[in-house]
Simulated assay, not measured.
Amino acid sequence: MTKSSSQFIILRRVHNKLLDVLVSYKVYINHKQVGKIRNGEELKIKVNSGIQNVQLKVVLETSNELKVLVKNKNVYLECGNSGGIKFFGGNWLYLKERA
């Protein structure tokens, strides 16, 4: 019997002095809320190996959905405000892999 190994998705929210400083982003992995992240914070989420769908939500807005392959190492992501205000349907939030 083999054990399924666990790695982490480590999400860093870029500190922003003006936009949405008081708002927490809800973090979803595979369409299930796994936590919240505030301005300037880093969140470490334990996940199993395989493809994970990551997305952020706040009020009525969502980020892009990012598919990441977690295999034998941690995955580092970055998120934040895309710099403007877009209502109903735009990607006000961004989510991307860190280099």
Rank of each mutant, 00 (worst) to 15 (best):
K32Q: 07
H31Y: 13
Y25H: 08
E61M: 12
A99P: 09
V14K: 13
L60T: 14
D20G: 00
I9F: 14
S82F: 06
T2E: 09
L19D: 10
K32R: 14
N81K: 08
L95M: 10
R98Y: 14
K17A: 10
A99I: 05
K67I: 04
E78Q: 08
E78L: 12
Y94W: 10
V23P: 02
K46P: 11
L93C: 08
C79K: 02
I45K: 09
T62D: 06
L60Q: 05
C79D: 11
K71Q: 10
K46G: 05
V70W: 09
V54E: 05
R13Y: 10
K73Q: 13
K86C: 02
G50R: 10
I29M: 06
Q7M: 01
L56Q: 06
Y76D: 13
L18R: 12
L11Y: 15
N16G: 08
N39M: 11
V54L: 08
Y25C: 12
T2Y: 08
G80E: 07
Y94E: 04
G40M: 15
L43W: 13
E97Y: 03
L56W: 10
L95V: 03
K71R: 14
Q7C: 05
K46H: 08
F87N: 08
I51Y: 06
L19P: 03
V21F: 04
A99E: 14
K57F: 01
I45S: 04
W92Y: 09
L69H: 04
L77G: 01
K17H: 04
L18C: 13
L18E: 14
K3H: 01
G90Q: 03
G89N: 04
S5D: 02
Q7R: 09
N53F: 14
K71I: 07
N39K: 01
K46Q: 12
Q55Y: 05
G89V: 01
I51S: 09
K17S: 09
F87L: 12
V75G: 03
K71V: 00
L66D: 01
S82L: 05
E41Q: 15
G83F: 00
H15N: 11
D20E: 03
F87A: 01
E61C: 04
V59R: 11
D20T: 12
G89K: 07
L60K: 07
C79N: 07
I9Q: 10
I85S: 04
S82Y: 05
V23S: 15
I85Y: 13
N81Q: 12
L77F: 11
G83R: 02
